[in-house]
Every structure is written in C-alpha cells, then in structure tokens.
Design a binder for these strands. Structure first.
Lengths: 233, 233
DNA sequence: AAGTCTATTAACTTTTCATTAAACATTATT
DNA sequence: AATAATGTTTAATGAAAAGTTAATAGACTT
C-alpha cells in the first residue's frame, strides 16, 4: 500500500530559496505548494488542505508573524513552523509564542529540515491513527475479525487462539491460492522444521472444524506442497 | 482548576548545567528530576511517570543515543529531546532518526528552552486530551463518570480508585476491541514490565467484580494478548 | 502518631493452548 | 502390490498465563 503524500504549504519570498526547497521537498516525496506572499497563501488555504505550513518571516506586505496570526485565527488546525534568518532571541520567542511547532534558523541544512518535518508529521499523524488495518473479513457465511481473534457464524462466536487466528489470517489473505508449508511455517513459526510442520497440521484440522459449517469453504491439502483455502463465489 | 505541573526527567552529566537547568525549570513551574547518568535515569523511569525527557549526548558509561534507544524500547510513550554541544549534522540527523521531538544545540538560551518545552507539551497534551475529554459514558445498565471516578448502577454508586477509573476509561473507549497488555501498560503505567502485568490482573479482577451486575457486559481475556470489554447491543 | 486509602507484591489455584505423541489414512514410488 | 512418504485426527502433556485473595508498604489525612 503506498503512503499518501503529505501536503506542505511554503510561504517564502526569496525566489532562490523557494525554488530550492520546493524542488528538494518534492524529491523527498512531499506535495509542496509554494507562495511568495501571505495574501496569496491565505487565499489558497481557503480551498486547500495541508498538513504543515512553512513560513518565512521577513517578507514584504505581510510578514510571517502576521501571517501566522491570521492562519491561527482562520485555520487553527494547521500546524506551522518558521524558517527565518532572523535568529534574535526575541524573534524565536515570538515565533513560539504564536504557537509555532518549530523555529528554524537559516541557513538550514536540507536534510535536517526534511527529517524534522518527517518526525513532526509522524507524531501529528500517529495520534490520529486508528486501528483500521485489514482485520475484518467476510468469509463465505462467516465473519472473521483477526484483531479480536473472533470467527462468527450467524450468532455463534468462536474465540480463536492466537495461532489459529494468525493462520486463518494468513490463509484468508491468500484465499484460492496455494500456500506452501514452507512459507506458512517461516511466517508464523519463524522456521520450517519437521515438528512445526506437525503442529501446522493440527491447526489446519482445527480450522477445518470451524469452517465445515459452510460448505462453500474448504481448506484443502496439495500433497507435499501446502494448503489452499477455497471459497466458492 | 490549577494546572498540574509537568514532570521532566533531565539526564545531564555536567554538574554545572544540570544544576542550572534544574533550578531554572523548577522556577518555571516544572517538576524536574535530574540524573547524572543513563543507568540511574532508566532505573527511576521504572517507577515514575514523566511528560518529557531531556537528554545530553556526551556522557560517560551510556551516551544519550543509547539511552534514547533503550527508553524508546521500554517507555515508548515518553517523548524525548536532545540537548547537546555536538552540533554536527550527522548527530542531529541521528537524534531525529531515533525519534527525538527536538534537537537543541548548546549553549541554549534558557528562555528559548522553556518556551520550546511549553509549546511541545501543550501540543502533546492537546492531542491526548481529545479522548480524555469524553468522560461520561453509558455502559450497559451502568453509568460511568471518569472525571469523578464514579460508576453507578441504578442507585448504587461505586467510587473507583484512580487506577480503576483510568483502566475502565481506557477499556470503555475501546469497547469490543482487543486491548493488548502492552498498550494498556504503556498508557497507564508508562512501561510494560512483568510486575505491572501482575498489577493489571488485579485491577481486571476488581473491575469484573463491579461489572458482573450487568450480564450484558463482560471483560474477557484473550490469552497472551490482552483484554476485551464486551458490551452486548 | 494513628488511621485510611490504594497500588503493588506475594502466594497460591486454575485455565489455556502450542506442542508432542500416537494411531490411522491417503498418496506416491518402486 | 508392497513400501515409503505424507497427511489427518484425537488425545495427552506441561509450561506459561491468568485469576483470586490476602498481605504489604507508601502516601496522605486527621
């Protein structure tokens, strides 16, 4: 699954630096929109969503501080950081006072900028992350919740053990495909020795016992190859 | 309501700077514990909860990077930042790579340090608060007020202890979902060691005792995984 | 200083579950 | 057809995990 690009809005009046950063951050897989003044940036924000704003401070018309104030007022969800040559203590303090997530002093090393941004976005994102991994399956007449390790058939709920659930999960993801002993054992047991193969058979039997309630499902052996979870459609 | 002091653990081998920072941050209304090496800091973390760790890098015995690695492993909820005289790009990158929330170069202006810390903690907190704001629940036939730590069943009111309430709150927010030992322990105890797991079991038993009055509620164990608070609908 | 409240630790019992064993069945090879 | 290899199923085992109750120790109150 390919990760969604993070969107960054950059407000920087210097053509050189603006171009440089746009190019570099694009290369680093960010989607970046660059504006050379606050007015146009604010305009754009009305119809676009970003994950982060990077603001220069010294700019004609509207400086970065005023821009930040307006952004905070109108788009309070958007985190922003300052990137400025002004390194006086008073400026840094003002930046943070306004609620910046960081204050970086020019000249900034591009790699450091990227890793700071990545860290920042990861942290902001991870809070939002809900366990929406693939864990909920429809399996013929069954429902399988691999997170809770529950297999349901109508009203009945079977509480699977961890290994049962892991195995079923593995097979479901590869339904109607041959899964070799070797791959299963390596993935779920960490190696593929003789005794674990015996163990695998025991678990196959157990899963069959659950699944036999639905005749459209079968868990078949392919001699000396592996198993296939077949589901008729 | 008066704001709870934020707790900071400082690991810094220089007596001068350690003392200076301890004093200054205390004055700024932080509760700060200062350790002169990683070993003693790790030891202390086992039984104390902090909101932030500030780590020096150049230290005898265990350097700040190794310390950070171990902290990340054992106390993954604790955010940390580096405060170091090592300003080489490679060090900064390594610091962020390890997951630091910031990397500050000595000499650091105390005011800037404080405002950076305050901003950081504010952000970290506001992200957490989202779920902590919800404090009033209907739970089968029970009502649960996590703010007052009260669990009510008809006219009966059970006054829960802090830990009981925290645990129930955690589980209620994730009802009908498997909550792993690890996540519970890290969130509520700050780490996940053997003895806290024992402690968790004791609290599970207590909660069950309250909840058994409503047969539509069950607090089930999933062997070697965690617990599920199930509420029939 | 005594008393209360509460989290942790201890001591002990019960349950769970992956593995192993064993008996039997099927498929492949000679 | 005989033998070997592989697969199926049920049951036994033992170690780890979970449950329960009680004791302990530390913080806070009075």
């Amino acid at each position: 699954m390919n990760k969604k690009k993070h969107r960054i809005i950059l407000v920087e009046d210097s053509a050189d630096l603006g171009y440089l950063l746009s190019e570099y951050l694009s290369m680093k897989n960010f989607e970046i929109n660059w504006f050379i003044n606050g007015i146009s940036a604010l305009k754009n924000l009305e119809s676009n969503k970003y994950d982060l704003a990077i603001l220069d401070i010294t700019m004609p018309d509207m400086d970065g501080f005023s821009l930040a104030e307006q952004m905070k007022e109108r788009f309070p969800e958007l985190p922003f950081l300052f990137l400025s040559a002004r390194s006086l203590k008073v400026d840094v303090l003002k930046g943070f006072y306004l609620g910046a997530v960081d204050y970086l002093k020019k000249p900034i090393d591009e790699e450091e900028l990227v890793i700071r941004i990545e860290n920042l976005l990861n942290r902001l994102n991870s809070e939002k992350r809900v366990e929406e991994d693939i864990c909920h399956f429809k399996l013929g007449q069954f429902t399988f919740n691999s997170l809770n390790q529950e297999l349901s058939f109508n009203d009945e709920i079977f509480h699977l053990t961890t290994k049962e659930s892991e195995l079923l999960h593995y097979l479901v993801l590869r339904q109607n495909m041959l899964c070799s002993h070797k791959d299963i054992l390596i993935k779920l047991w960490g190696n593929n020795d003789y005794f674990n193969k015996k163990s695998l058979n025991v678990f196959i039997t157990r899963l069959r016992k659950y699944l036999e309630k639905d005749s459209a499902i079968s868990l078949d052996n392919v001699h000396s190859q592996g198993f296939i979870l077949r589901i008729e459609k």
